[in-house]
Computed example of a mutant assay.
Amino acid sequence: MKPSVIVPLLAAVLSTQTITAMAIDNGRYAIISRHSGLALDVDGNSTADGANVVQWEYTGDENQQFNVTNLGNGYYTIRPVHSDKSLDVWEWSTEPGGEIRQWQFSGGYNQQWAIDNAGNGYHTISSRHSGLPLDVWTWSTANGGDIRQWSSTGAVNQQWRFQPVDGGDDGDDGGSGSNPGGPVGKGSSCESTGSRFVPETIVVNGGTFDGQCQTFNASSALGDGGQSEGQDPVFRLENGATLKNVIIGQNGADGIHVYNGGTLENILWMDVGEDAMTVKSEGNVTVRNIEGYNGSDKFLQVNASTNLTVSNCVVDNMGKFLRQNGGTGFEINVTVDNCDISNMSEGIFRTDSYSSTAHISNSRLRNAGRVCIGNWASCTSSGLSNF
């Protein structure tokens, strides 16, 4: 090949590498699966060579944090903070299904990774050695699900969000979600992957329902999304069920009902109906990474004894953030942490029960009214700021 041809081709290659290298800024990240909402994790917090890489619910521990460094050649190193080793294609495999583990950093091609924008704030992570992307093995949604390499499919189990541990900008402007912070920051990371019509309440009895960030639009048979009592919920959770990765559309009806405890994770209410969520019977309820807008009355309603924990939320334009059923004396214990709450016409917490407690911490408020309204046994706050 003539030199005059080599030079333009080389320039084109360098240009492509430069674009790829800009996909992620150098920094420390949690790496979250689009498919499962779980974080990349070195199993058992191990610091040993050969420790397996899995997915796990994000805890903030350093075995779920990774120093990502641009090598300047179109590839990155991805190194677990707790061990300072490296993500490694085990035994230099080039086969689909090859394992991903951690190993002492050597700089080999099996420890170099291409990070490419997949759109909507997500990226693929592909081995320089094999050319294969990281993949949530067998589409697992469970803690401990294996991470391997597999032929590129473009599916969501091969897409990852790089969330800065400090909640800052991840350097990607490709997504326009309601809150690009996702499972580590505040609010929901969901951007609609399609719409689903809901003619009758979806019941989740135990186990997990993963909505894959679809938008669920209630029919008029459930209600009109106004403030009339007696509307039906879009989802009904029973017996410790988990609901995650869901967008509730413009007709919110009566949102989500929880019976006998449950977990809500990564939920967006585009337009809160009668209530966003109602605790309907006794049981512990955990709610995290939620986001909701435009509810005339309550965001959260509690109609039974519960320990309710809410974290990483964004809630705007409601009457109240939380209301215990009026005129009742049963005990609820509410803990709210790391939330942005704005434009509450009345306030944050309201009860008539002398036995109930509430605490809000590490949160930002704007035009949020009184924190405590009513006859709480204890209602306290710490680490609040304005925004």
Rank of each mutant, 00 (worst) to 15 (best):
A12I: 12
A21D: 14
A23L: 04
I31G: 04
L40N: 01
D41A: 03
T47L: 11
A48W: 00
D49F: 05
D49R: 03
G50C: 03
A51K: 04
Q55G: 01
T59W: 10
E62Q: 12
N73V: 03
K85M: 08
W90T: 12
S93P: 03
G98Q: 12
E99T: 00
Q102S: 08
I115C: 02
D116P: 00
N117R: 05
H123A: 12
S127T: 04
L132F: 09
P133Y: 11
S140R: 09
N143G: 01
Q149L: 11
Q149H: 04
S151P: 00
S151C: 02
S152Y: 15
Q158S: 12
F162E: 03
D166H: 12
D170V: 06
P180R: 07
G181H: 05
G182D: 06
G182A: 11
S188M: 08
C190Q: 09
E191Q: 14
V198M: 10
G207A: 08
G207W: 07
D210N: 15
S220A: 10
A221R: 05
V234I: 12
F235L: 05
R236W: 10
A241R: 01
V246R: 08
G249C: 08
G252K: 11
D254N: 15
D254S: 15
H257Q: 13
Y259E: 13
L264P: 04
M270A: 11
D275V: 14
T278Q: 12
S281L: 07
R288H: 10
N289V: 06
E291T: 06
E291S: 13
A304S: 14
R323Q: 14
E331I: 01
D340M: 13
I341Q: 06
I348W: 08
D352W: 03
Y354K: 05
T357G: 02
A358T: 02
N362D: 10
L365P: 00
G374T: 01
G383C: 10
N386V: 11
